[in-house]
Each structure stands twice: as structure tokens, then as C-alpha cells.
């Protein structure tokens, strides 16, 4: 049975005269891997910040994990996980300190943290590195650890903002295996990426252009609709017309 964990209805954010996110509407189901694509400056980050309870919408409505983005932002924060390539782990803390820190912030009990940490380190083959500073880890390990930390408190939804930049193709796929496994457990994945082949790994993909969602469907249907052989082509067809560009 379908169960929506994110609903957005005409969600809008204005900064003065500038409409960063313009009446965006969509639903994301439980356990779905939802790709949120768009060119630089299309309004992805602004939309994501509203859904994470970090930015108040100008108009429209949205719920995340059943909570309202206007009134229940603290509840939202407790029920989501977040990871981006730019910011995820503390480089000057060790692997196990990072886990303890994040788990503590989410209010997990000390004993539960201890047990689960051992489990996680074992699963990632990181047990020998428990006391290693995160900055000494290879990038691929950091990314896998950051993702695992983001879902450590079993959130209903995890937001991934360009999680996989710069790693080798094998490590990138290992990372996606972690994503698949989390989705299988019922965690909803909301992911932005510049790798168009990764868009294919999503159940459904939305593409934003100049603040609006211009397309939303399965990768397969999108390719059919736009008469394209790859998601790259679909993206180029839509984003070429964009007037805005920014980071």
C-alpha cells in the first residue's frame, strides 16, 4: 500500500522579488528512492531546506513524516536524516566519536548507541578504524560512514544532497548499495545528484527548472515522454531552456 511520507502542495519560497521555489507539488512514498534533479540555481536547495524544517515557506503547504513544515519543524528534524558532501562528519573527531555525537544529538540512549555502533562498524568493515580521526579516512569510506550516521537513528526519511561526488566508480556503486538497503528497510531516500546515471537508480525523478518542477516520473517514462535514450538527454532538453543559474 502506498503511504506518502512527504507531501508538498504549491510550496513556494520568495526572497524579495525572487521566487526561488515556485508552487512545487509532489508526493514521495515510504521506502521510495526519489531523485530531485535540477541545474545549479533551479531552486533544489531552497526546496530541500524547507522540507528539512530549516526555512519557512512563503506560501503553500507541505508535510514531512506527517509533520507540518510551518509549525512542527522540530518534529521534522527529529524524524529525518541529512547528509551532503559539503558537510557531514567532523574531521577532527574519530569514527566512533562522530557516531556517538550524532546519535546523542538525536537523543538515542547510551546503551543503544554502544550496541549499534559495534554493529555498524562491523557492517562497514570499519572496526579497526573506530579510533581513527575521520580526516584520515579515504573519501569513499567517509561517504559511506556519513550516510550510515545519517540513518543511525532510524529516521523515516533521509535527505542526501549530492552525496557521491569525486569517488571512483566502484565506491560509488557500493554507496548506492547502502542506499538500496536502507530503502528496503522502509527508509525513504530523497537525493540530489549531478550524475545522470544515478538518476536511473531512483524509483522516480523530478527535474526542476527555474523554480518549478517541469517533469516528474519514473526514469523509464521520462525517457519515453522526452523521446530520449538516457536521463542525461532528458535533463539537457529540460535544463537547456533555464534562464537562471547559480549555486
Amino acid at each position: 500500500m502506498r503511504e506518502a511520507v512527504i507531501t508538498a502542495n504549491k510550496l513556494t519560497k520568495k526572497f524579495g522579488d525572487f521566487i526561488a521555489t515556485n508552487e512545487v507539488s509532489f508526493e514521495v512514498d515510504k521506502g521510495e528512492i526519489f531523485g530531485f534533479l535540477g541545474a545549479n540555481g533551479a531552486g533544489k536547495t531552497t526546496a530541500m531546506r524547507m522540507l528539512c524544517g530549516l526555512s519557512m515557506p512563503s506560501s503553500g503547504s507541505a508535510t514531512v513524516a506527517g509533520f507540518d513544515v510551518y509549525k512542527q519543524t522540530e518534529k521534522i528534524k527529529q524524524n529525518i536524516g541529512y547528509m551532503s558532501q559539503k558537510f557531514s562528519l567532523y574531521e577532527d573527531l574519530t569514527v566512533s566519536e562522530n557516531i556517538r555525537f550524532y546519535a546523542g544529538i538525536y537523543g538515542m540512549a547510551r546503551q543503544a548507541i554502544k550496541e549499534k555502533t559495534a554493529q555498524l562498524l562491523n557492517q562497514l568493515n570499519l572496526t579497526p578504524e573506530a579510533n581513527t580521526l575521520v580526516k584520515a579516512l579515504p573519501l569513499g569510506w567517509k561517504q559511506k560512514l556519513a550516510f550510515s550516521v545519517a540513518i543511525f537513528h532510524e529516521p523515516k526519511i533521509v535527505f542526501l544532497d549530492e552525496p557521491t561526488g569525486g569517488v571512483d566508480p566502484i565506491t560509488r556503486r557500493e554507496f548506492w548499495n547502502l542506499i538500496y538497503r536502507a530503502a528496503e528497510r522502509g527508509i525513504t531516500i530523497f537525493v540530489t545528484t549531478h550524475y545522470m546515471d544515478e538518476a536511473e537508480y531512483c524509483n522516480r525523478v523530478s527535474i526542476m527548472v527555474d523554480g518549478k518542477i517541469e517533469a516528474l516520473d519514473t526514469p523509464r517514462n521520462l525517457k519515453k515522454t522526452f523521446n530520449a535514450t538516457s536521463m542525461d538527454e532528458v535533463f539537457l532538453q529540460l535544463a537547456r531552456g533555464a534562464k537562471r543559474s547559480d549555486d
Partner: peptide
């Protein structure tokens, strides 16, 4: 082209 979207990369 790192971190740049597909259109700008092209």
C-alpha cells in the same frame, strides 16, 4: 567541471 550541472559541463 566538478560540481557543475550537466548543462554547464556540456
Amino acid at each position: 567541471t566538478t560540481g557543475v550541472d550537466a548543462v554547464s559541463r556540456k
